[in-house]
Design a protein around this nucleic acid. Structure first.
Lengths: 228, 228
DNA sequence: TCCTAATTATGACAATTATCATTTATTTTT
DNA sequence: AAAAATAAATGATAATTGTCATAATTAGGA
């Protein structure tokens, strides 16, 4: 089994401030998991007793609305962590984390995390900063959902997906989402999302290659996202 | 000047775990402010060097959208605190806090707060819990903004306003908001908000007495907010 | 590989929501 | 108290978005 002291996670996020000893402790207690596409890492309402480090793979964080529709709140990729909010706030998980592809994930028991929080103020601070940043982004999202038309939100989402996942060797945004998932991200009907994507393609702003999306004119998208 | 050891804030929020000594320290360094209706306690993008304790009065937390429209993210009342996210994350303030009526506010310098954070893990934990709860609520708000029609969001907002501010001696929701502010809360045009309020009145779900709103049928509102 | 199921796409139409214009009511200022 | 400014209300209309139906395409399993 791999050793946390050499883990790529160390380069990212809150974990970069952990000491060698702390990482050794993590190594001793951690479990490595394979999460298959479509499976949940965490489930809304469940309690959780540890931290998940995403080694590899992508997942979506979703919320089930009272009307039964899924809302995608955030995307997660390798190097990100999951579950720290729940550990810190001592509350059940608020979102579903569903794999968009097969994932490799490490689970570190709550006890070890809490010890590091106690011993290592910088680690603890970094976790808080992470949650604060998420709150800040969430507030922006509320504002955009409330006030921007669907077209603008789609443009915004495409830019943000490229930002998060980068592009593959064909310059396509490096994540596979169904049209329904795109619709559930921007908060619209699947048909509307499809139609607006088709329009963007017709205007040569993006190209559609099956499920793959290639941004052709980033400036145009930026303008659309700002309402022009 | 009043003494923090007897302050009503002690009964609320993160501050209830502060020791007598800590409160004495706060007392020595705090400043009391009067914020007039319409004035800002904090302004988006500014940095902040302390914590605001709301003694009395109400304010709105807003965000200015790229299109120039104001989005109301949250309402704040006596007993709430402001600025702790910014202190903890060491980032500028993310939202404007604008007084909806004259307010009494105490300002406690950052240094004292940081000392208490260092000395008092429970205080620190409570601040984190507060931010976590806000994140959780924000995620719910994203989902509702994205997926619920304006009518449902209005119903939801009315219920939540009564929840937050309670009712006055005439059973009206105890906060004065303009129609525009209501519209900016639910994310719609002012005229749409006015029309939907009129409809709710016509259906005897609410009553409108000038700017005051009285909920007549809470169950009906609840049903509407859930899409029935 | 074929078959089935799911996804994507598109048209037609209905419902929702925004915008503009105008009137009425309420607040604020003089 | 009157005048001016602001806010609320309402109608008419346009734009956006959702829903339903159906066809075309793609993906996944036997």
């Amino acid at each position: 089994m791999s050793n946390c002291t050499h883990c790529i996670m160390k380069r990212f996020n809150a974990l970069k401030t952990l000491t060698h000893d702390e990482l050794e402790r993590f190594s001793d207690h951690k479990t490595s998991l394979i999460i298959k596409k479509g499976e949940n890492i965490m489930t809304e309402g469940n309690s959780i007793n540890g931290l998940y480090c995403i080694q590899d793979g992508k997942c979506k964080l979703t919320k089930l609305n009272t009307n039964g529709k899924e809302q995608i709140i955030k995307f997660i990729k390798g190097g990100d962590i999951l579950g720290h909010r729940s550990i810190l706030s001592e509350e059940p998980v608020g979102l579903n984390a569903t794999a968009l592809e097969d994932m490799r994930v490490c689970f570190i028991p709550k006890g070890d995390i809490l010890e590091s929080i106690k011993d290592n103020p910088q680690f603890s601070l970094n976790l808080i900063k992470n949650i604060s940043l998420q709150l800040s982004l969430a507030n922006t999202a509320i504002s955009q959902m409330a006030q921007k038309p669907v077209k603008d939100r789609l443009a915004e989402t495409l830019l943000s997906l490229e930002e998060i996942f980068g592009v593959d060797n064909e310059d396509c945004i490096d994540v596979i989402l169904t049209r329904e998932e795109i619709a559930n991200t921007i908060g619209t009907a699947t048909e509307s999302a499809i139609r607006l994507l088709s329009n963007l393609k017709k205007d040569h702003v993006i190209d559609l290659l099956g499920k793959k999306i290639k941004i052709l004119n980033k400036n145009a998208l930026k303008n659309i996202s700002e309402g022009y």
